[in-house]
Design a protein around this nucleic acid. Sequence first.
DNA 1: AAGTTTTGTTAGATTAGTCTAACTTTAATA
DNA 2: TATTAAAGTTAGACTAATCTAACAAAACTT
Lengths: 227, 227
Amino acid sequence: MLSITEENYLKALFRLTCEEVGKTDAGTNEIAAQLDVKPATASDMLRKLKEKKLIEYEKYGKSMLTRRGKKMAMEIVRKHRLWETFLYEKLGFTWDEVHEVAEQLEHIQSQKLIERLNTFLGNPKYDPHGDLIPQADGEFKLIEKKTLNDIAEGETCLVVGVSDNSAEFLQYVDGLSIAIHRPLKVVSRKPFDAILEIEVKGKRSAISARLADHIFVSREVKKAAKM
Amino acid sequence: MLSITEENYLKALFRLTCEEVGKTDAGTNEIAAQLDVKPATASDMLRKLKEKKLIEYEKYGKSMLTRRGKKMAMEIVRKHRLWETFLYEKLGFTWDEVHEVAEQLEHIQSQKLIERLNTFLGNPKYDPHGDLIPQADGEFKLIEKKTLNDIAEGETCLVVGVSDNSAEFLQYVDGLSIAIHRPLKVVSRKPFDAILEIEVKGKRSAISARLADHIFVSREVKKAAKM
DNA sequence: AAGTTTTGTTAGATTAGTCTAACTTTAATA
DNA sequence: TATTAAAGTTAGACTAATCTAACAAAACTT
């Protein structure tokens, strides 16, 4: 049985090294920053996780999850996202409120609970942020993420997620009516000052390219149906 | 903000000193036993809780909650029982399974979560064990508990709760078809060997007076309707 | 009332997770 | 390549919660 702290290290490693295509390992400082602890603390814990064969790690080297560590990390991420879905769908929490509470709920130990919750929610595939929920059998499809910056002028896309889960950011995008599974049109872009003009639900706003980089989108929407 | 351990001490004190009429304070050994720690450990923590003005305690004396400590303890008990109700009502957990998981869920910190959960469950008054759920405003009606041993031969009563939440006990009473809000008839009793013959849902069983002491019952049921 | 048992406390050790400060290794750059 | 900067580690200290062992106080019991 892992401690809550150990679970958090595995989750951080999963986010940093597995979730996106291309990434494979993470440095100690990067891991420490993700968990908001000092590098010394992370260094120590990485040594312990290596002992437990949950990560691959050599002194002064980068870290990555072992098969076993990845499996456990995905179970935690699965719990986190199922709880987020519960809070959003059943208790009416908003997009930006769910993360903080799910950070606590994800550590509840009960196999039965999580499977019942999954059934209760109707086997959801995505959480309220549009992130894929790992399945009980360990299945998890990696998605090549495309951001708002990849969308050409005049094109409409579908928002599928965000890469910044801070309450500040989530509230900000909510203020622009940006939401999961909602179409978004890139009206125009000014590359040199890096500002995009966008339209969501008939409402136009400006967004910086730096922020647009945190908004993941999927396929173009040819017929901007219910905008 | 209290630690999980501190919350558990407050909850133990609430159970031992507040929940039933008559009880007002608890000894160190009793508290240690409730929490499954050594008396030395409890002694130390009682000193700390006194520092924080959550309990009244003097060296070598008995302990009781202060007004502030009691309020916090009741919030934890409220959370515990709301989660038990959720697990039972919404996720189909059985009577004897809910306690263990609720022990973890009760420590989740989110005012909003617990109020939304309460609404979602339709403002329940009792948990699946028949125990009263403390209300958000701090209201909590003490109930004079009457046990199966207080019921005369030939009389029928209504089961309202149990005082032993161990999985073993809950499974045992479940095996006798004893359940909350279900009528139970005391067919006969043999005072000297302390065995009661009871009838639930037309099924007769024998139960020792020692175990009967852990089964709380309410008013007699004159017409044993749907037995 | 004296002795014994029960109850409760104190002291010192242990573990997990964190920190700071000092040090080492690796990478970047002039 | 020599120096500097960045990244990472080690050592030592701290806190919270626990334990065991030894001690002290209170409560029974003749």
